[in-house]
Structure formats: structure tokens, C-alpha cells
Write a protein that binds this DNA or RNA. Structure first.
Length: 569
DNA sequence: TTTAGGG
DNA sequence: CCCTAAA
């Protein structure tokens, strides 16, 4: 896997001023996963839209405008594993003449962009992350590449604790890449480069299917992608037909420069997004990291964004200013310093900061020990070193819920500085930013999704099983929501469906021979209780069914001691 | 949204 | 765990 074309650019110009704390739009609790899944799309949708505007009439072969005077880093490129023949991106041969100033990789399309991550300058990492767009198609996918070989100290130093992540929205022809810096953490033990590749192949089948679904659902997204592609095609055609390919076009809406003067073709190589920082347990998987980043990104994109224009590292605020006046014109020496940034909408701090509801968030997935009936058991289910030390390979014991979707935690509620994940959307420039004309009005984002990804597998710990059994003994089967509330209220990742499923497997487990059982062994005692409770409630249900009335809710394991209970004990 | 079950 | 028909 590799990175397609990475564009190199300096970061300096893009530096956003240190951002003050800004309340991040809070996320609602996610109740349904599906909904969540749509987010990314929304985000991409937005990006696509933005890109669409920006790329308006822009052809792939546009001369790359280096955002920041980006020197050719090609030389620095070492064992660039990232390099990839960017198929779709390959630009037709016609490179604008002037582009040579930036990089003359004309011969080699794929090489157009400077290599990338490795080339990146350190500041980038510290700065937050940037998103790069490139016209191309691919699947939405995020891949992390450990491109930073630990051995190459030189490269490593560049990143100094930075993590790079790239996004690649496939349907649309956007390529985004961002690097997330986590300098805040002391124990930044690893540096990773992430690259996106649109190689859909990589996606797991299930993911692909889901993705398809999601994508199909997102008409807008498709539309946007189509638009972009169409535009590209059209542009390309036009260029082909026209001899004056040297003529440059503006990326901007035509609206920006109404003057009939010559046009400037700009290539949006990257967008800088307000810094984002995430926290994630080191024990978390790469997949979790991806999701976390995706969610964090979505969170950022969720808010309204505007496109900021930078010139020589400075933000250009005058929307009415003519490009020519600003120095954005063909052959302008400043052309290469043009940069774009995604900026959060100015206002919004007060309103959108509801996330203050800090209380109810999950304290780790600790399951409360049903106060009433489960006295002594290890209260915190997950984190607890349960009596049964069977933790096999996984160290999930330590990190109970690495998987927990950070996003939810992060934005909606302040995550407790727990070990695991908590995304803390960092401050976005609170500064007021003038909405640039270019910005599309689209914005509907919502949670990100875990885009069809299968949830991470999180085996129930013995403590959880204990809690589940206790709850079921009391509430019965068939009241999973109550069970959830009772025993897993704080375990965000355990849905009532999960509990129901777990119960099902427990019953099965208890039924089969011990040798057949897999996973962390569940104490026989618990299994016995499972069978007893299952039997008991099964009877209760049948009884109730006959009596036609009777609410199961009234029945209680405790109040109406069943033979089962007795026998089990 | 929950339940209940099959996959 | 996922997916969904039913309720």
C-alpha cells in the first residue's frame, strides 16, 4: 500500500494561531450505530462539496500549486513505501508550463506530489492535521501505514511523535490526508504514518458491503462525487480541445473573480484543518485508531466550516479582494504560497457547547454492581482483574475498552482522563472567520460512522458475565433493555442486543461440554446459574403466556424464589 | 425502539 | 457480532 501522491508543502504558512479552547460541538449519544455510520459520509460529503467548488473546472492535471513554498522533497524521499502509482490521479500530460516552478514531475504523474509524509516537516505534525485533496477516485478507506520505520531515525525525528493519518474518500474524487499530532501525550511511543489508499480491495468484504450501502444512501455524496468527476472530465476535455491549456482557471467559483481577466489555475493540495487531538490507549488497535480519527475528523467537520485562504502564510480575509490584487495570478511569485484551510465557523461557541454534560459518561465500562443484588462481585466489570485470570492473549484486561468509540465519549461528554480513549477535539480558532464565498452551504454532518465497520470484538469478562447473570436472574430473559440499564448502564459498548446475544451464548456454553468451550472460561458456577435462570424464566414465560396477563416485570427472581434459584445455589 | 431469532 | 422482521 502506498501512498499515492503526496504533496509536500511547507506547513508554516498554514499555521493557525494557537487555538483557544473552543467548545466542540457535542455529539449526541449514539444510540444506533447505523446513524453513526453516516457521519463519515457526511463529512466526506462536505469535503466533496468543498472540493467540488474548489476543483470546479479544475482538471487533474492542474499544476499543483504548492501551498507553502514546498521545495522538492523528492530527494529526501527514502524508502518511500508510500509511493504509489496513483492511477486516477495521474494527470494527463499537460502540465501547465508554469508549474515547473513547483515541481516538474511532469514526466511522472505519480510523482507529481512530493512524497509525503516522510517529507513532511516537523511543524506539520505539531500543527494539527491537514487534509489534502487530490482529484481521484477510490474507496473510502483509511489505512495506516507504519511508514515511519523506527530505524530511520531521520524520518522519525521529523514526526517527533506525530501520527499521520490519511483519509481517502473514495467515491468522491477527493483524497484527504491528515496528520494528527499528539504531542500532548507524554508517552508517545509510536509514530505512524497513515496513508490512504483508495484501494477498495483492501476493504473487508463486510466493510465493502456496508460501505456500498452507506454510499448508496448518501445520494449527495454520490452526486458530489459525480459532479467532481464530471467536472474533471469536462475540464479535461475542454483542455484537450483547447489549445490554450496554458490558460489557467480559477479554482474558485467563478463568482470570486468576476473580472474577465485571465484565469489562474490553482490546485488545492491540502486543507489544513483545525488541530485535533485524540487520545487513545496504546493497547488499542489500529482499527480503533482509524475509527477514532475518523470520528474526530467528523466531529470537526461537523461544525460549519469555511474555507480560508492563505497567502504567504497569512490569512486573506478580504473576500472582495481580487485575486490579481492579492497576488494570485498566473506567474505570480506568490502563487505557490496560496493555501486553503478549513476553518470552523466563527460563532458557535456558546451554543454548541452543550457537551458540558459531563456526568453521565461512561466511566469506563464499569458495570455497576447491581447494588441490590450483587454485593461483592468485582464491581468494575471490565477493568477488574477478575478472579479468573484467564486472560489469554489480549491485554484487554488492562484496557477494558480500548475500543470504545472515542467519539461519543469525547465530544459529548468529557471523557475522563482515562487511559483509554477520549477524543478531545481541540480548540478551533475561535477567531471569527469570514465565510468565504467559496464555502458550500452544505453541512450536515453528524456522527461519524464507523462506516460499516464491524464493531471490535470485546469478549465478555467474567465480571460482566456475572453482572449479566445476576441481572437476568432478577429481571428475566426478554427484558434486555432493563438488563442493560440495570447492569450495563455505563458500558456503552454493550447494547441490550449484545446482552441478549451473550445470554444466548452463555446458555449454549453451559450446555456444551467444558472442553468444547472456548475463550475465557466462565466459572461453572455462573454457567449453572445461567441454566437455572434460563429454565426458570422459560417457565415463567410459558406460564404467563397461558395466563395471558401477568407482566413479567412483576415477577422477580428474588421475590418469587424459584426452584431454580434454590437448586442452583 | 425493543424483542426475538436467524445468520 | 450482525441483520432484521415484528411488535
Amino acid at each position: 500500500m502506498v501512498l499515492k501522491r503526496r504533496l509536500s508543502y511547507g506547513s508554516r504558512g498554514y499555521y493557525l494561531p494557537p487555538i483557544p479552547d473552543i467548545p466542540k460541538p457535542t455529539k449526541k449519544k449514539r444510540t444506533a450505530r447505523k446513524k453513526v455510520m453516516q457521519n463519515p459520509l457526511a463529512a466526506f460529503d462536505m469535503l466533496a462539496t468543498v472540493a467540488g467548488n474548489l476543483l470546479n473546472d479544475l482538471d487533474t492535471d492542474v499544476v499543483p500549486v504548492k501551498l507553502e513554498g514546498a521545495p522538492n522533497y523528492n530527494s529526501s524521499l527514502k524508502k518511500e513505501p508510500l509511493e504509489e502509482p496513483l492511477d486516477q490521479l495521474k494527470t494527463p500530460k499537460m502540465e501547465s508550463p508554469d508549474q515547473n516552478s513547483t515541481n516538474q514531475s511532469t514526466a511522472e504523474p505519480s510523482d507529481l506530489s512530493p512524497k509525503t509524509l516522510t517529507d513532511k516537516q516537523p511543524d506539520l505534525c505539531t500543527n494539527g492535521y491537514e487534509v489534502q485533496f487530490a482529484a481521484k477516485q477510490g474507496q473510502t478507506d483509511i489505512d495506516l501505514v507504519r511508514s515511519i520505520s523506527s530505524e530511520s531515525s531521520s524520518e522519525f525525528s521529523l514526526y517527533s511523535g506525530g501520527v499521520g493519518i490519511a483519509l481517502d474518500p473514495n467515491p468522491s474524487s477527493l483524497e484527504t490526508r491528515l496528520t494528527v499530532n499528539r504531542d500532548d501525550d507524554e508517552n508517545t511511543s509510536w509514530c505512524t504514518d497513515a496513508v490512504v489508499n483508495k484501494s477498495s480491495k483492501r476493504m473487508k468484504k463486510s466493510c465493502v458491503d456496508k460501505l456500498k450501502k452507506v454510499i448508496s444512501r448518501s445520494k449527495k455524496y454520490d452526486a458530489a462525487a459525480k459532479v467532481i468527476n464530471d467536472r474533471k472530465r469536462k475540464c479535461y476535455a475542454q483542455q484537450m480541445s483547447q489549445k490554450n491549456r496554458f490558460k489557467r482557471r480559477t479554482l474558485f467559483h467563478c463568482s470570486s473573480n468576476s473580472s474577465p481577466n485571465s484565469q489562474v489555475r490553482l490546485r488545492i493540495k491540502s486543507f489544513k484543518v483545525p488541530e485535533i487531538s485524540i487520545e487513545i490507549a496504546e493497547s488499542a488497535s489500529i482499527g480503533t485508531l482509524k475509527r477514532t480519527v475518523m470520528e474526530a475528523l467528523a466531529a470537526v467537520l461537523e461544525g460549519e466550516l469555511t474555507v480560508g485562504v492563505m497567502l504567504e502564510g497569512k490569512k486573506v480575509r478580504e473576500n472582495s479582494r481580487r485575486l490579481r490584487e492579492a497576488g494570485i495570478f498566473c506567474d505570480s511569485p506568490l502563487l505557490d504560497t496560496v493555501g486553503f484551510a478549513l476553518e470552523p465557523e466563527p460563532v458557535q461557541s456558546p451554543l454548541k457547547a452543550p457537551h458540558t454534560s459531563s456526568d453521565s459518561f461512561d466511566n469506563r465500562d464499569v458495570v455497576e454492581p447491581l447494588a441490590s443484588d450483587m454485593p461483592a462481585t468485582p464491581s468494575s466489570l471490565e477493568p477488574v482483574p477478575v478472579p479468573v485470570p484467564t486472560t489469554p492473549v489480549k491485554s484487554h484486561v488492562t484496557d477494558p475498552d480500548p475500543v470504545l468509540s472515542p467519539i461519543e465519549v469525547s465530544s459529548a461528554e468529557q471523557a475522563v482522563p482515562q487511559i483509554s480513549q477520549a477524543i478531545i477535539p481541540l480548540p478551533v480558532p475561535a477567531v471569527k472567520i469570514e465565510p468565504l464565498a467559496v464555502v458550500p452551504a452544505v453541512r450536515k454532518t453528524r456522527q461519524v460512522d464507523t462506516l460499516g465497520q464491524r464493531r471490535m470484538r470485546r469478549p465478555f469478562s467474567v465480571a460482566e458475565v456475572e453482572a449479566l447473570v445476576a441481572a437476568v436472574e432478577k429481571l428475566g430473559t426478554g427484558r434486555w433493555r432493563d438488563v442493560k440499564i440495570r447492569a450495563f448502564e455505563t458500558a456503552k459498548h454493550r447494547t441490550y442486543v449484545d446482552l441478549k446475544d451473550k445470554w444466548k451464548t452463555l446458555v449454549h456454553t453451559a450446555t456444551i461440554a467444558p472442553q468444547q468451550r472456548r475463550g475465557e472460561p466462565v466459572p461453572q458456577e455462573l454457567l449453572d446459574r445461567v441454566l437455572a435462570a434460563q429454565s426458570y424464566w422459560s417457565h415463567q414465560h410459558s406460564k404467563l403466556a397461558k395466563s395471558s396477563i401477568g407482566e413479567p416485570g412483576l415477577v422477580d427472581y428474588d421475590s418469587s424464589p424459584s426452584p431454580v434459584k434454590i437448586t442452583s445455589l
